[in-house]
Design a protein around this nucleic acid. Sequence first.
DNA 1: TATTGTTATACTCTATAACTATA
DNA 2: TATAGTTATAGAGTATAACAATA
Lengths: 144, 144
Amino acid sequence: MEPTSEDRHLARTLSALHRQVALRYGTVARRAGLTLQQAELLCQLERSAPSFGQLARLLGCDKTNVTGLVDRLERRGLVRRETDPADRRVSRVVLTDEGRKVGEEMSDAFACAVAERCATVPRTDLARLARIGAAAADALGDAS
Amino acid sequence: MEPTSEDRHLARTLSALHRQVALRYGTVARRAGLTLQQAELLCQLERSAPSFGQLARLLGCDKTNVTGLVDRLERRGLVRRETDPADRRVSRVVLTDEGRKVGEEMSDAFACAVAERCATVPRTDLARLARIGAAAADALGDAS
DNA sequence: TATTGTTATACTCTATAACTATA
DNA sequence: TATAGTTATAGAGTATAACAATA
């Protein structure tokens, strides 16, 4: 299938936006002494306690990779492993109090950085971006 | 500065969108036998021949890193180094014919993947996303 | 003297294959 | 036997400090 001119334009835009977000998010993470990958893992723990396999799927990497990421976050006291009582093969990754604090600080810092820089973009456009961006992220995340 | 509820919402959305784009883009890159970082460097060469320092700034990484990335892309025949005649300290990175071909194939494949998956999102919304997303990327990319 | 790219080093990220423990 | 997580290994990405060539 050949992409249309509109397809190409949207793809280029999403790619540029992704790069800028990664840059800003990486800056915030580094200020907290974390890598971008560690910060993204930490953010997946705010509302649930996923297993290693679930984390691998959420982050789009191999499960062997998650072992190392969690090792390093655990060594810094930001997360801990908990064995699932229902199935003793699975380990769940849980935020410590310190980990929750660091995660919230990073989220706030990133939100502020975005808001400051996007102050030149009309408010109604930002609201649209939030709405449509969420729909697009959902669509892109659908299986396979 | 404390972020508003709208700030947080926008930041969460941009973060989710970034993650999905990175996942899809990474898949396309891997199919071409490249890492996500190599693919992103390659895409910076379509319209210009940046120096190592410029590439470092564009990619948000250290210049020492660019040396390694270019080494690996050069080893695979996708780019080559050219000394700038005006200032013999600077090297410019140039696409080979093969590199341009691979870059274009990846761009097309990514545009198609996005278009297919976003088929459920109304066309007018996608046009808005492209317009506002570009403005936001510009705003986020502004200095400092 | 300042700048550009490179090298050396150390650590992190990443996937594949082989392994252990549990189901 | 199948699945969840780990370990060993190897290669790639990353930054810091020291360096060579050029300006």
